[in-house]
């Protein structure tokens, strides 16, 4: 189970993270989940072997302040989230503008919960399974 979770708002995020950094924590990663109407972002930090988390609810369309001014290590995961979830992250040290993992022809924000992407072949009509289906693992 996830313990040691602290709820936070986007405007207080950078200040809170700077405090956490001052306590000697290590930046671990950010997890983003699409909840349908909002994105759920969890920032993970390692405090001498103990994990602590900051939880952020970000409505669709809102921008996210970047942590890369505090922790340069955050820049890679923030670019990934910008690509895969379509969240605009502002003030990143290196901004790939949505071309970090994806190309021009890639689907937009593929990890959001939208219908039609990565349909499981088993729920399709039998005729459609003959074509190369995206649901196959490899």
């Amino acid at each position: 189970m996830l313990t040691n979770v602290q709820e936070i708002t986007p405007d207080r995020l950078v200040g809170e993270v700077a405090l956490i950094k001052g306590q000697g924590c290590r930046f671990v990663t950010v997890t983003c989940t699409d909840l349908g109407e909002a994105h759920d972002l969890i920032y993970h930090f390692d405090d001498q072997g103990e994990l602590r988390h900051l939880r952020l609810k970000l409505p669709h369309g809102a921008t996210l302040p970047s942590l890369s001014g505090v922790w340069f290590a955050a820049v890679i995961i923030e670019n990934e989230i910008q690509d895969l979830f379509g969240i605009t992250v502002t003030g990143m040290a290196i901004d790939y503008k949505g071309r970090f993992l994806l190309a021009e022809s890639s689907p937009k924000a593929p990890f959001n919960k939208l219908g039609g992407i990565a349909v499981d072949v088993r729920v399709r009509p039998p005729a459609a399974t003959e074509a190369a289906a995206p649901g196959g693992a490899h």
């Binding site: 072949v121 088993r122 399974t129 289906a133 649901g135 196959g136 693992a137 490899h138």
Partner: peptide
């Protein structure tokens, strides 16, 4: 087997 196959290899 068809339902369980992780790679949808069995029909």
């Amino acid at each position: 087997c068809q339902r369980r196959c992780p790679a949808n290899a069995i029909t």
